[in-house]
Computed example of a mutant assay.
Amino acid sequence: MRLAHAPDLHPLLPTDLNPGRRTTMENRTDPIEIIAQVSARDGKQRALEVWLYKADKEGWPVTVESSSVDETGDECAVVEIESLRYQILHAKRVRRRVAIVPRGQHLIAAGAGAPTQG
């Protein structure tokens, strides 16, 4: 299950989990780092429940804005945590390569080993 920041999503079904619970930022795992390890056999509903439990345990005030556990695709829900919207996905974790390009050089030029033209 993955979490993606989704700033342009609109609220649909507000459900507040634990509005009064607050802890300091230093004691909490960032929501983007919370991983619910749930198999495809257990389904998206269970994946969402586990993720919400883990987020609550870390002290995050989570509001479920929309749920799509009964629909096809990877998305389980859209949640709001401290005024930021996140998309909860039930999918395999993805690792992507990150390119660090020297200042003034274009990404494609750096990948091809071409000199920078100014």
Rank of each mutant, 00 (worst) to 15 (best):
A4V: 15
A4M: 01
A6R: 06
A6T: 04
A6H: 06
P7G: 00
P7E: 03
P7F: 02
P7A: 00
D8F: 14
L9F: 11
H10Q: 09
H10W: 15
H10E: 05
P11A: 05
P11I: 01
L12K: 13
L13T: 12
L13Q: 11
L13M: 05
P14H: 00
T15D: 12
T15Q: 05
D16F: 04
D16N: 02
D16H: 08
D16V: 06
L17C: 04
L17R: 01
P19N: 01
R21V: 00
T23H: 11
M25P: 14
M25V: 08
E26H: 11
N27I: 11
N27C: 10
D30A: 15
P31V: 04
I32K: 08
E33R: 13
I35N: 09
A36L: 04
S39M: 00
S39F: 00
S39A: 05
A40N: 09
R41F: 05
R41N: 11
R41P: 07
D42R: 10
G43H: 09
G43A: 01
G43W: 09
G43P: 06
G43S: 03
Q45L: 08
W51T: 07
Y53R: 15
K54E: 08
A55I: 02
A55R: 07
D56N: 14
D56I: 02
D56L: 04
K57P: 04
K57S: 13
K57Q: 14
K57I: 11
E58T: 10
G59Q: 03
G59F: 04
G59K: 04
W60S: 02
W60A: 02
W60R: 05
W60C: 03
P61V: 08
P61R: 15
P61A: 12
P61C: 10
E65P: 14
S67H: 14
S68N: 10
V69T: 15
E71M: 13
T72G: 09
D74N: 15
C76S: 09
A77G: 07
V79P: 02
V79S: 11
I81V: 10
E82N: 15
E82V: 11
E82K: 12
L84N: 13
Y86A: 00
Y86R: 07
Y86P: 07
Q87A: 13
I88S: 12
I88H: 10
I88T: 14
I88Y: 07
L89R: 09
L89I: 09
H90W: 06
H90S: 08
H90P: 08
A91W: 00
A91F: 00
A91C: 14
K92L: 03
K92S: 04
